Amino acid sequence: MSPWALVLIIVAAVAHATWNLLSKRAAQADGLVFVWIVAVAAAVVWSPLFAGFLLVTGDRPTWGDLAVIGGSTALHLCYFLLLQRGYGTGDLSVVYPVARGTGPMLASLVAVLFLGERPSAAGVAGIVLVGVGVFMLSGGLGGGGAARGDLRGLVPGLVVGVFIAGYTVWDSRVVSAFAVAPLMLNYLGEVGRALALTPVVLATRRRLVLPVWREHRWRIVGAAVLIFVSYLLVLIAFTMAPVSVVAPAREVSVLIAVVLGGRLLAEGDLPRRLLAAGVILGGVVAIALS
Rank of each mutant, 00 (worst) to 15 (best):
V243M: 02
V221T: 13
V285N: 04
V159W: 08
G143N: 10
T18G: 03
L202D: 11
A26L: 08
A257F: 01
P271L: 12
I9P: 00
I236C: 00
L265M: 13
R25P: 04
L232G: 00
A277T: 10
F34Q: 05
V285E: 03
A17M: 01
A29C: 07
L66C: 13
L265F: 07
L274R: 08
S2C: 02
A74M: 13
F163D: 02
T102S: 11
L109W: 10
A179R: 14
L197S: 09
L264R: 09
Y87W: 09
I280T: 15
G145Q: 12
L83R: 00
L22D: 02
E251P: 03
V33K: 09
I236H: 00
G123M: 08
L197I: 12
P3E: 11
Q84K: 11
P97H: 06
L77I: 05
V175T: 08
V155T: 11
V56C: 04
I236V: 15
L137M: 15
L188T: 06
F238W: 12
V212Q: 09
R273I: 04
G142L: 10
L260T: 06
F34I: 05
P119I: 04
A286G: 08
R219S: 12
F178Y: 15
F114L: 15
A146C: 05
V45P: 06
A286C: 15
L195M: 11
V45W: 11
Q28Y: 07
I236N: 00
V134R: 01
A17R: 00
F135R: 02
A43E: 03
G192A: 13
D269Q: 12
W213Q: 09
V169A: 07
R214S: 13
L141Q: 06
W63Y: 11
T168H: 03
S230T: 01
H76Y: 12
A15P: 01
W63C: 05
V234C: 01
I280Q: 01
L109K: 04
V191C: 11
V40F: 05
A13V: 00
L260N: 05
D59T: 13
I37C: 07
V209M: 13
A203R: 15
A125C: 09
G261Y: 06
F80C: 03
H16S: 03
V252Q: 00
L141M: 13
L232W: 00
I280R: 01
V234F: 00
S47R: 10
P199C: 09
F135T: 02
E190H: 13
